[in-house]
């Protein structure tokens, strides 16, 4: 798949899944906006990897849960690359995936949910509102939201995180219905446990083994595994797919 001449913006692309997605787009010739919030160093490393891969990349620091932050991120990307063809909403509120130290439901405050909603739905909402006007000038675009397979199979019940991601799937569907007639597709990619990432570094081996044994493809996802379906959903190969959720978890969830 050749993305040369395409402009892609990935939020939360400094590390982990976001970084792998940015690098994969760069490998296919895209211009990539690499958004990050706190760690300039890892973002710079992503940009360097993108450029080694043959693409053009730009690191942009911005808080996408904030409307102005999202607007600035989009304007800077358009200033650098002229347009936005693909938006990948990958950023989320920091969350520690530790099955042994997770909060039980009766320990949760509403604020925990609120915080995850902001990181998932509000961030995506801000980004979509900022980026869609540019996509409309061509009546063409692809938006990909990153969720989790925990919404379908809560192997570990991370209530606040998974509920917010489930809301993101609803957000994807209504948005797909709204933007389809305007030429823009919206889909969700729902990864299973991805290792290694910053968020998953504390997951114990026995949990990983349990997941591996229940997974038909008998392994845990790598960040690069997530990039393939994202590129597919960004490409004309998926021109007639919108409002869908693609699980990328080796078959743990089947729908």
């Amino acid at each position: 798949m050749n993305f040369s001449g395409k402009s892609v913006l990935v939020t939360g692309a400094g590390r982990g899944i976001g970084s792998a997605i940015a690098q994969a787009f760069a490998r296919e010739g895209a211009n990539v906006g690499v958004n990050y919030l706190t760690n300039a160093e890892t973002a710079a490393a992503t940009v360097a990897a993108c450029e080694t891969n043959g693409g053009v990349a730009l690191a942009i620091c911005s808080d996408v849960t904030n409307k102005d932050g999202a607007t600035n991120l989009v304007s800077e990307t358009i200033e650098a690359f002229g347009k936005i063809d693909v938006l990948v909403n990958n950023a989320f509120r920091p969350y520690e995936f530790d099955p042994e130290r997770r909060k039980l439901h009766w320990d949760l405050d509403w604020q925990d949910y609120q915080s995850q909603f902001e990181g998932a739905v509000q961030a995506a909402h801000n980004m979509v509102q900022a980026a869609v006007p540019n996509m409309l000038t061509r009546a063409n675009g692809s938006i990909i939201n990153i969720a989790t397979d925990l919404i379908a199979r809560p192997v570990v019940p991370y209530h606040d995180y998974a509920t917010a991601k489930a809301a993101l799937v609803g957000f994807t569907r209504t948005l797909a219905a709204e933007l389809g007639p305007l030429g823009i597709r919206v889909n969700t990619v729902a990864p299973g446990l991805v290792y290694p990432t910053k968020a998953s570094e504390r997951v114990r081996e026995n949990i990983k083994e349990d997941i591996i044994s229940a997974t038909p493809l008998r392994r845990i996802a790598k960040p690069e595994d997530i990039a393939g379906p994202v590129l597919f959903l960004a490409s004309p190969w998926s021109a007639f797919i919108t409002g869908q959720t693609i699980y990328v978890d080796g078959g743990l969830v089947m729908e």
Partner: peptide
Amino acid sequence: GTYIAQSLA
């Protein structure tokens, strides 16, 4: 106009 564009597409 954008709706028309998508319909033309």
